[in-house]
Computed example of a mutant assay.
Amino acid sequence: MQLLDNALKIEAEHGTDAAFPQGFAAFVRSHGLPRATAYRHRERVKLEGRWQPRSRAPRNRPNATPERVRARVIALREELGPDNGADMIRAALLVEAAEQDWASQGLVVPARSTINAILDRAGLLTKTPRKRPRSSYRRFVYARPRDCYQIDGTTITGLPVGRVCVIEVLDDCTRTLVATRACWAETTKDAIAAVNAAIASYGAPAIVLSDNGTAFSTTARRGGTQRSRFAQNLDRHGVRLIHSSPYHPQTCGKVERHHQTFNKWLAASGHQPQTLTHMQALCDQYQDWYNTQRWHSAIRATPAATWANAPALGGPTSLPAQTDAHIYAARVDKTGRVWMHGTSITIGRAHTGQTMTVVIDGQHANVHDHDGHHLGHLTLDRDRRNQGQLIA
């Protein structure tokens, strides 16, 4: 039809002979155009006096987002500061809708995709095409609060106080920030203080997950085999320590990602701490805001509400109960193997008598020793009784 429209445009500007030397009917037949459509297009040009493309947009949009809602979406993009993504905007709109009774006014809170479309049309959407889509991730979450705490430190520079470290302890299930501690460096002493503060405020977890930093994994005696002071402290609370795989920060991904949220909040707040005491006060202020006010997109609520509504809490007296993964505490027998429900994994005779933590996620198994160090992994073959040697 583009050819016909171009020819009609020439006819409107230069006459019929210039556009259709053999006549309009012959032009339609030679190009195999629908006769009714061709004459309808020509009649429109005669009535309007010129060719003008018409909008293909529908004349009315009964399901279009009202202007009032669109305006609030754009306004919240600015008002929410660093947390101004579609999920956070929708959470704020849900609160406003309840307070202002949008339902009685025929207004509804738009979906996340609609909010992104509104921001895109307004030129406010930052596109990241290289970012992996959410559907490509496999999320691992412990089933109950206190099943697992993740601990890690982040270094912050550029403040009047100088270079500081903030050690954060995060509950894996509810994303509750159970402790935050400002210190000069990520030391064992401060790591112990942070995890003890979490235990005092929220209770002891079944597992503490950390990376292989010196604050968490250094042995008590250089070159010796004695457990680290951090691990010994957890032993007194009956808590098992697990370290993530070396050079694999995704294992502690929740607390690693949380550092970014804290850094954004600190930058947007405009606070310039002059002392470590002031920095700790800001950490305490952030912890309260994050737990009780900030809506978390992964859990669709605030961390405090998720914790309060949990039907049960975990702890040292029972290993985490998982539906998507299984965790076993198994002792290495004299043949160097551990057994789980008739299936064995070869660890090595050097570990005979030691208790291992085995995490089985689908067909994949990871084994950690009593100190929490990752010993290796393997892919399970359900048709075999003995799964063979671990892959370091």
Score class of each variant (00 low, 15 high):
Ser318Met: 13
Tyr202His: 13
Ser135His: 11
Phe216Gly: 10
Pro58Ser: 02
His377Gly: 06
His364Asn: 02
Arg300Glu: 13
Thr154Val: 03
Gly376His: 00
Ile156Val: 08
Ile115Met: 11
Leu4Gln: 01
Asn366Ile: 08
His31Leu: 14
Ala185Pro: 02
Cys173Lys: 10
Pro145Gly: 13
Gln280Val: 09
Arg229Cys: 11
Asn366Trp: 07
Gly32Tyr: 06
Thr292Pro: 06
Gly15Cys: 02
Arg40Leu: 00
Thr323Val: 12
Gly253Ser: 04
Asp381Gly: 02
Asp333Ala: 07
Pro311Tyr: 04
Tyr286Asn: 06
Thr154Cys: 09
Gln2Thr: 15
Pro58Trp: 06
Gly362Lys: 03
Tyr137Val: 09
Arg229Gly: 07
His368Cys: 01
Trp265Met: 00
His364Tyr: 04
His368Arg: 10
Trp289Asp: 05
Arg240Glu: 12
Pro133Ala: 12
Glu168Lys: 04
Thr323Ile: 07
Phe216Cys: 05
Val169Glu: 05
Gly314Tyr: 03
Met88Asp: 11
Arg68Ala: 15
Glu43Arg: 14
Gly85Ala: 10
Ala321Tyr: 08
Phe230Cys: 06
Thr317Phe: 11
Asp190Asn: 14
Pro205Arg: 11
Val358Glu: 00
Asn63Ser: 14
Ala18Asp: 12
Ala392Arg: 14
Ser104Val: 08
Gln105Thr: 02
Ala98Glu: 13
Asp235Cys: 07
Gly336Gln: 08
Ala206Trp: 02
Thr214Gly: 02
Leu390Glu: 01
Ala220Thr: 10
Glu11Ala: 15
Cys173Gly: 11
Ala350Cys: 08
Cys148His: 03
Ile199Asn: 05
Asp324Glu: 13
His31Glu: 01
Asp383Asn: 05
Glu96Lys: 03
Ala194Cys: 02
Gln150Trp: 08
Val28Pro: 09
Thr306Ile: 09
Tyr286Gln: 02
His271Gly: 02
Val45Thr: 04
Glu11Pro: 00
Ile151Val: 15
Leu234Lys: 08
Pro320Val: 01
Asn386Ile: 06
Gly362Thr: 00
Ile347Trp: 03
Ala365Gln: 06
His237Asp: 06
Ile391Asp: 09
His341Gly: 08
Arg227Asp: 14
Thr251His: 14
Ala298Phe: 07
Ala330Val: 14
Ile118Pro: 07
Leu209Gln: 15
Thr180Gln: 05
Gly49Trp: 08
His373Ile: 10
Ser104Pro: 06
Ala19Ile: 00
Asp5Pro: 03
Ala330Leu: 15
Ala86Tyr: 00
Thr317Ile: 10
Ala305Met: 06
Thr317Gln: 15
Asn84Ser: 15
Ala26Met: 05
Asn116Cys: 13
Ser244Gln: 03
Tyr290Thr: 01
Gly353His: 07
Gln260Tyr: 11
Ala305Val: 10
Asp324Arg: 14
Ile207Tyr: 15
Gly32Arg: 11
Tyr137Pro: 01
Ala91Asn: 11
Ala25His: 10
Asp87Asn: 02
Pro34Arg: 05
Asp190Gly: 07
Trp265Asn: 01
Ala75Lys: 13
Ile115Lys: 08
Thr176Met: 14
Leu375Lys: 04
Val108Ile: 12
Arg112Ile: 15
